[in-house]
Amino acid sequence: MLEVSGLIKRFGGFTAVSNVSFQVGQGEILGLIGPNGSGKSTIFNLLSGTLAPTGGSIRFQGHEIGGLPPYRIINQGIGRTFQIPRPFKRLSLFENVALAGYYGQGQPSRAKAFEAAERALTMVGLPTDRDAGIGGLGAAGLKKLELAKALATQPKLLLADESLGGLDETEMDQAADMLRRIRAELGITIIWVEHIMGVLMRVVDRVMVLDHGEMIAEGLPAEVSADPRVIEVYLGTDADAVQAAAVRV
């Protein structure tokens, strides 16, 4: 479904993504993990069109999409959520999702957009009434809204960015279940970027580990978590943090 080969992104002299290649099959949930600044979000921005790649190719369903503007990529069937929810505060809850349903599907009829919005809101468990505002939504509610916006565009591939950040443990489990249900009920393929490894490992079929813009491991969750390089990367950052804390004391 998605084939990425030799993907490169440089910002001036800094290489954020260096020669990364991977594939995602139809109906798969792929986890993408790595420490801060490892290039996860950059890859998402490249896949969704927010950034244009410096080199390499991104093929989605046989078509090259690298460097296309975001709206064209969405209309081809790739939806995304943002790490930090970005709701439109001047619009109501329903309008937020209806907007995505309308423009994300390449401007069908208003009725079709509203229908998609209703389905998406129901799926994530938010109210579908037209007057509800977004003022009362907490962290979990805003994450759901992000997801509903992405789902309303009727994606074939969903890019979920740090869906769990800022959630408590029950909310995390619910969010993880939600991604599973989205795949099961809507048949949507998912790439899931996450900081928190535990929950992710229980849900994904396959996981990819990035460090300094390079892919250092890829495979089944059990294999990857036993990989010495992955352990080093994760423990390494932790060890640094412990040392830094010790120095401060």
């Binding site: 969704s48 069109g49 927010t50 503007p69 975001p70 709206y71 969405i74 209309n75 995304r80 943002f82 970005r86 439109f88 505060k89 001047r90 619009l91 907007l99 995505a100 309308y102 423009y103 994300g104 599907q105 390449g106 916006k149 565009t153």
Partner: peptide, 15 residues
């Protein structure tokens, strides 16, 4: 309205 608030997020919604 969405563009006025956040152009990137509007783009991500397909606008």
């Amino acid at each position: 309205e969405a563009i006025a608030e956040d152009e990137d997020a509007a783009g991500a919604a397909g606008v």
